[in-house]
């Protein structure tokens, strides 16, 4: 069973979101990195670019698959993880820590559209069948 920390929020498309004051940090879940396999490439949004909720804003690639990252909340990108760009393996090794993808200043309050850890666990379990 993959690691799903209780203190984070999630999307059905396997992104995680962490809120610190008015800044959100976004990455992909342990389950997602496990399904994709060893990542070889990451494409991240440009700082200052703006995205609507659900818009494609980044790509992660393994040798056999490529996955789009959908912006979990509308907002403006304020920082991207340069270390992950240079070394995508970080996302496999530490998806909730050193493998974060980008930080966002949201236009709206994250609130209800995101899943909590329990809801996300259920979704992952249901996908296994």
């Amino acid at each position: 069973m993959s690691n799903i920390p209780k203190n984070l929020r999630y999307t059905p498309s396997h992104e995680w979101v962490k809120q610190d004051d008015d800044v959100l940090t976004i990455g992909i879940t342990d389950h997602a990195q496990c399904m994709l396999g060893d990542l070889v490439y990451v494409e991240l949004p440009e700082v200052d670019s703006q995205f609507q909720h659900g818009q494609e804003c980044a790509v992660v690639e393994s040798v056999k698959a490529a996955a789009d990252i959908y912006c979990p909340i509308g907002g403006e990108v304020i920082e991207v993880n340069e270390a992950a760009l240079g070394n995508p393996q970080l996302i496999n090794e530490d998806p909730y820590g050193k493998g974060w993808l980008f930080r966002l200043r949201p236009f709206e309050t994250p609130a209800t559209i995101l899943l909590n850890a329990e809801e996300y666990s259920k979704q992952v379990a249901s996908e296994a069948h």
Partner: peptide, 9 residues
């Protein structure tokens, strides 16, 4: 290599 750019993926 770099097959993930290609149409079959």
């Amino acid at each position: 290599t770099l097959q993930a750019r290609e149409q079959h993926i």
